[in-house]
Design a binder for these strands. Structure first.
Lengths: 133, 133
DNA sequence: AATCCTATGTGAGGTTTTCTAACATAGTTT
DNA sequence: AAACTATGTTAGAAAACCTCACATAGGATT
């Protein structure tokens, strides 16, 4: 959960924009929320505001639905994927603890070089990088 | 005008989101539009939709206003900057025409490697890269 | 000092967008 | 055939946004 994730999770888009970006109907988007596949933020006035992550999820949902997966299946897939990334994160964390100071410096340097780029670790291919260069 | 510019100019955000992102009032944003410092798109229902470029411009406007520059000054600055980038683009275009095929292949390869990253050529320092990693 | 100008605040009245809730339905699944 | 799933559609209400108009503080101009 570094800075970039905070940014990618910023609530920015109203449902109308998301409809166009994803080519999903409002009904579909709300239905997926109802089934807890996404959890868009709300304004004070109770209107949904979606993040880039939400849009990624919706595009992923759309793909899976096209492939015949139902709500339950998608939910499970999301769960697994989340666990996976948790495991990877933990491993990375653990690996760091085993490093020498020298190695750690190298690692940090490389991570810094990565900053400022898109680097989604998604199973999908064409995610939001389609919309922002 | 490559693909990425199309993306950065996509109308996405309603004024409410832009207000929060820029900490400008709706009145201010509309006033700057009235003075043609920005030209946000409109929905079918006549609501403004702002792009990432619009938000960059607004942040730039805000900086300049803080520094005491008035509307006319900002307008001139924007004009100059646009001319500048036009010149740069022309130069780049001209340079390409003078290249050998070999050099051209190299150039294209490098440009492709750049794809998928943010690379604003703005005078400002902290632009939208603040919001998206 | 009186006036004008610039940038912004505020409010009214109207329209668009979104909200929830309900009912409808074509395809599955049981 | 009955039930379920995913989606469409509609209605009524509320939020967000629109334009236009008037107000005003602080600078600039006369």
């Amino acid at each position: 959960m570094s800075g970039k994730e905070i940014r990618r999770s910023m609530p920015l888009f109203p449902i109308g924009t998301v409809m166009q970006l994803t080519e999903l109907s409002a009904r579909q988007i709300r239905y997926y929320e109802e089934h807890q596949l996404i959890s868009p933020a709300r304004t004070d006035g109770n209107r949904r505001l979606f993040s880039l992550n939400d849009i990624d999820s919706l595009l992923e949902i759309k793909d899976l639905i096209d492939q015949g997966v139902n709500m339950a299946g998608i939910k499970q897939l999301f769960l697994v994927k989340q666990q996976q990334s948790n495991v990877l994160e933990q491993q990375a964390e653990k690996a760091k603890q085993d490093l020498t100071d020298e190695q750690l410096r190298n690692l940090l340097r490389h991570e810094l070089q990565q900053a400022g780029r898109f680097n989604r670790s998604s199973l999908r291919q064409g995610d939001m990088s389609r919309f922002f260069h």
